[in-house]
Design a protein around this nucleic acid. Structure first.
Lengths: 135, 135
DNA sequence: CTGGATCCCACAGGATACTG
DNA sequence: CAGTATCCTGTGGGATCCAG
């Protein structure tokens, strides 16, 4: 049957659209910086190199799994370097690459924007919440 | 007993950290633009106002639920205006506020960064994937 | 046409224990 | 110390039906 349900059409559109989004650099980067831990790790590393457990302590509340996972993906994308020193207790240092520093800059821009406009957003929220409450 | 298990300490740290993050404007904005649909809606609306169903069609693959949910949160944050025209079939238009346009600008900056550095990321990925494969 | 309400499931991500 | 493997839960988000 040539007729598709609305759900089927939407599903098809979604798949195509997802494929399109995946091929889009903007969206890929957006996915990167959207990740909660990515931004935290990059920020933590911005001042200088840190060891694995230092990161774990500095970020406070990250599970080893997510820390490793985040570090791996950032390393893969060439945003940070992983240096292993095979001493008696193994020592691993992580530091941002030039590209990583660059991303940190972008995060800073986001941060600046946030701080600049945060009051407006807060006011808008209060207005919105209030006008709904008093009826 | 005054002694806490490692899990308890981590849990406490996580709660405190979450509270800290919630109070941080940067993180709130990051949460905003991280949302997959938020960026798409803002981009779709950047050129000009659109109706509800136009948005649904332009974004292709969004469920009515997420579309509404996204629009509501953006409206609450004062990023877009919702205009209801009570004609026979109800008509609702959405358009970015000045603040919303501003956010669109930020997304554009992210986009520019992405397009500028995407090649480097892609190369880094290929390098990473290759060196792992040939052993 | 524009949504609200509900059910439901996949999957990201946290806790935990174990290994080089 | 620096992870890896496993399990398990929370929740984001899609499908579906209903209402103004």
């Amino acid at each position: 049957m040539a007729t598709m349900t609305a759900a089927q059409r939407r599903e098809q559109a979604r798949v195509e659209y997802d494929a399109f989004l995946k091929s889009c650099p903007t969206n890929q980067l957006l996915d990167r910086i959207s990740d909660k831990w990515v931004s935290l790790v990059v920020s933590a590393l911005a001042p200088g190199p840190l060891r694995y457990s230092d990161l774990g302590r500095k970020i406070a509340g990250v599970s080893p799994k997510m820390l490793t996972q985040t570090l791996r993906s950032l390393e893969r994308d060439g945003l940070l370097d992983r240096t292993v020193t095979p001493s008696v207790p193994v020592r691993v240092d992580y530091e941002l690459t030039a590209l990583g520093q660059n991303l940190a800059l972008l995060l800073t821009a986001v941060k600046d924007w946030a701080e600049t406009h945060f009051d407006e957003v807060r006011e808008a929220r209060e207005r919105y919440d209030t006008e709904g409450a008093d009826s």
